[in-house]
Nucleic acid binder design. Structure first.
Lengths: 166, 166
DNA sequence: CGAATAAAGTTGCACCTACAACTATTGGCG
DNA sequence: CGCCAATAGTTGTAGGTGCAACTTTATTCG
């Protein structure tokens, strides 16, 4: 079967998307690492916990919300636990399951680091785009996510991301 | 100074983009790893070399085209050299510099793995989008890249990405 | 009820990446 | 010419991630 190569427009769009894929994570990571000592993924984990009821989730649910595999989340949880930002304890309802909960220190960490992170996202992404582009981006990412993760098994619903500032 | 939080539209767009950032690299990596034993970044390095004159570039130039830091590229080059896909040799004009060249084996590897990779990109990205979305995506990624990498120091020009099929 | 299967996590290992430190060479400039 | 800053690249190390193997507990079903 013959390969259907990309035409000029497709190629340009893809090469630039690939560049964003390569560069943007580094931009997110280095700001958070510098200002908070966290990777973007670690921040994301804390942020998801911060808006959960009781600031607690089951590992599997958290893995889905953060688009991570369970082994990956398990390693990161270990690290965050060493840092005193989360704590894990067995789920009373299901002895197989583990709950993970934000500690007061972890909650404070999220509060402290959220403004800088949001400013960074604004500076490098949101403020670079027109309202029409924001809207188009939503549609584009939606379409791609449906191909990548058809039944949205990796995200439940797409909910708030920034911490609740109580 | 007060934080300017994201409104609903901005937040939705950002959360989805973050999801793509998290999931898409895994999709690219696992197809290439399975079918070619390469990471996406390794493939990208080989692809860039495949279309350079003499299939040769200076390390710094290749690092710019692949959006990588020099240390990162140096490690990857070592690995690709161990695999017999590239070779490095000192630049005659500048004794500080190192040239990196695709070997015949490396060239063959790119030829063999390109169709599967392109099919994967089509399946998960390009074919999910309308022509209008492709066009919008180009504009959006362009705007973001200008913020992330203002003087395009990390990319010279955005050129072909798929290997030349001679 | 009891065996088989599936689900939930953890762990180990190999590889990848960032960052800092280091070597070697070049180019400027007094 | 000779010193000093800048450039090119490599290496070491620490931390992050994927994958496979493993343990434990729940669920299914004969």
């Amino acid at each position: 079967m013959d390969t259907e190569w990309l035409d000029q427009e497709e190629l340009t769009a893809w090469v630039r998307l690939a560049a964003v894929l390569e560069l943007l994570p580094g931009v997110l990571d280095s700001q958070l690492r510098r200002d908070a000592g966290l990777t973007h993924f670690q921040y994301y984990v804390l942020a998801m916990l911060s808006e959960a009821p009781e600031r607690t989730l089951r590992m599997t649910a958290l893995a889905a919300q953060t688009h991570a595999t369970l082994p990956r989340l398990s390693h990161v949880a270990q690290r965050l636990e060493d840092l005193g930002l989360v704590e894990r304890f067995p789920c009373p309802q299901d002895a197989r399951a583990t709950n993970i909960r934000l500690t007061p220190t972890g909650w404070q960490k999220v509060q402290d680091s959220a403004p800088g992170h949001v400013a960074n996202v604004r500076q490098h992404v949101i403020d670079a785009l027109t309202p029409e582009q924001i809207s188009a981006l939503t549609g584009i990412t939606d379409a791609i996510l449906h191909r990548i993760d058809p039944d949205a098994s990796m995200s439940a619903t797409y909910r708030r991301y920034d911490p609740v500032v109580s």
